[in-house]
Nucleic acid binder design. Structure first.
Lengths: 213, 213, 213, 213
DNA sequence: AATGAATGAGGGTTCATTCAT
DNA sequence: CATGAATGAACCCTCATTCAT
């Protein structure tokens, strides 16, 4: 991590952010050094505190904007799901999600590296449990939907299993997103994983009705 | 992390290990402090170096034994797969893996927390790419098997997709293992994920034969 | 070595250097303590690293300037010797060296203590073999000159003896320089030792021609 | 410096000494580590303190015996010089010294490495000024002899110059002794240096009488 | 006679942060 | 706005030494 590799034809704040980005991505929040971030930006550490109150605030200045855009999109998707009548919601959610994958991917790919950072290098910040919280949110939505499903004759997989599947799905999606593959591949595979989990789950449900798993 | 919370009715080495375990699990390798590990065990930092040559050695004293047992088991499983005739290997591998899940789970559950530590908090140690290396290994085995599959009329999914699926599967398994659920649930869900991925992949193959995905 | 004995009416860098000088001179490189150097200068250890990257760098900040001036002078002297025709070089070298002794002494006396430090307390630094390297350099020059000497009828002392004499001469010179005597005395005695060795060697050569030593 | 390289078929004390010797020679007094000395001898550090009260005592257990034998020999030589009538002493001393060189060399070569250690690696011990003290002693003897010299018509070089010459001579001798050359070479060169200094000094005196230096 | 355990002090170094200028 | 100086705490680690056993 050499000195002064960040372009100098930018406002100070942006130079600091560019340098911080580089260091946080390479080392994670904890291992990155304010001193090196500053010197790499061409400033002294003190300068940094004119713009950001602390190392953590600096991190959030990088992570918050893309993260909140993504969270907003997820909220939108969730809200759209909520417009479905409750008894059709569980099986309609997927279609809505699939249809939004390209837009969601666009959003994520606007700054995929930051998503990676939040997922893998945010220990010590408010995002350190980001993935777990995301899973929690989705579980909540799905479970509500599952309670209102109309076909009472098919018994759903139990809630814990659902949670685990959801965790697996989300972990897998983020693993994929963060893996460095190109956007088209990621979009394709997000759909792929969706179908795999869907098909798998449906086969589970059928089997549950026929016999015991 | 207060001082002196580790029981004093144990040999020193064990007290240090217990304390180190606590701190490493809570903070990861890098963020944990030798000073605090020592003082929490009721000793001065110097005492620790009578038993372990370095912070890293201390980490390995915790991580190596369970990890090497697990790696040994994975080797055994792989070797058993290799006893299958090459042209039947791809579709026979799963059965072998399923049959070994309980034993593998037993092994993992002997010290699941350490597996978690290795997966999530081992930056700075030789294990920092553990998961990626595990995925790499498995990809290798599977791809070899895929090349020798006999049914030439069904076109396999392409290698990149296979890799992504494998990554997703393994990431999911470890996510599950590390999630804190009880052993029976984990064993059940390891099978579940296996079936989901298997079913999903088969449905993929069928679709590929019918039309284009 | 008490705290805070270095004058406070100097820039920080100079205070650190003054303190470091004191400690290095008194204890040598290895035994001197960064903590004590800093506190003696009236600072915390961290302050020191704002000016010098490491203990070694701090040492070099003291040792390099005088040392490189001296080495430069020695290079100049050597170059001047090289302007002599090869066959006259061996016996002409001395005169050149004598003529340069005052300037060389001036240079050395600009910071004789540092020369002492380098000669006696530089273990662990790049200067730890300074004297030996200096001897090696001179041996090289002299041996070359000896090969081209014109008077083939006088047999030179063998190379090993020459090396030993050279070592003795240089060791003696530095011993003298470092001994704390005033400049005039040192200059006088540098000449004196030169003549002693010269006379001694000449008498040797003569004896060698007359009979065996 | 590996563990346990010292032969085990010796009494403990000797094994410790052998190991200490190795470490002190390689690193000097200060940089050598009791812990490593002990472990290299096949013991724990504590064991060492059953035989030697401190690191320094251990050093002396190695250094004192050869050193005191050498000092004894030097005393003997000095005493023999004292048997000369005072007015003949100055010019008779050399002959006595030359005649004793072989025995002195034998003594030194019994443990030349220790002499090297004392000269070059004894900082922090009572021997750290060994050479300077030796010089001081000899100066004393010579100066006394110089005061009683009978030929009042030849003015000796002044006392300071004498001291410096003596220092140079002794420093040179020890430099030679410690340089690692074989005993025959050392003995030959000890004589050589003696003659060089003698011849040189005589020529000085003559010149002083003829004209000014 | 030797160990094993442990200490307390200290080693060089890096850190995020503060603040007067 | 940015610096430069400095801090105090913390980092991992090594040391010579002690002492009960």
């Amino acid at each position: 991590m050499e000195n002064q590799t960040v372009p100098t034809d930018m406002p100070t704040r942006d130079r600091i952010l560019a340098s911080a980005r580089k260091h946080f991505l390479a080392l994670g929040f904890q291992a990155a050094s304010i001193r090196k971030i500053a010197s790499d930006a061409g400033f002294t550490p003190g300068a940094l505190y004119g713009y950001f109150g602390s190392k953590e605030e600096l991190f959030y200045a990088l992570a918050d904007p893309p993260l909140s855009r993504i969270m907003q999109k997820l909220n939108d998707i969730e809200n759209e799901m909520m417009t479905l009548p409750p008894e059709k919601r569980l099986f309609g959610m997927n279609a809505i999600f699939y249809s939004q994958i390209p837009e969601l991917a666009d959003l994520i790919f606007e700054d995929r590296a930051i998503v990676n950072l939040v997922v893998n290098g945010s220990k010590g910040t408010k995002y350190e449990n980001f993935l777990a919280e995301l899973v929690g949110r989705n579980i909540h939505v799905i479970c509500e939907a599952a309670e209102n499903v109309e076909e009472k004759n098919i018994r759903m997989v139990d809630e814990e299993t659902l949670e685990i599947l959801m965790e697996g799905y989300i972990a897998t999606l983020f693993h994929l997103i963060v893996s460095g593959r190109d956007k088209q591949t990621v979009i394709r595979c997000m759909g792929l994983f969706g179908k795999i989990y869907e098909t798998g789950i449906l086969s589970l449900i059928k089997k549950e009705n026929e016999c015991d798993l």
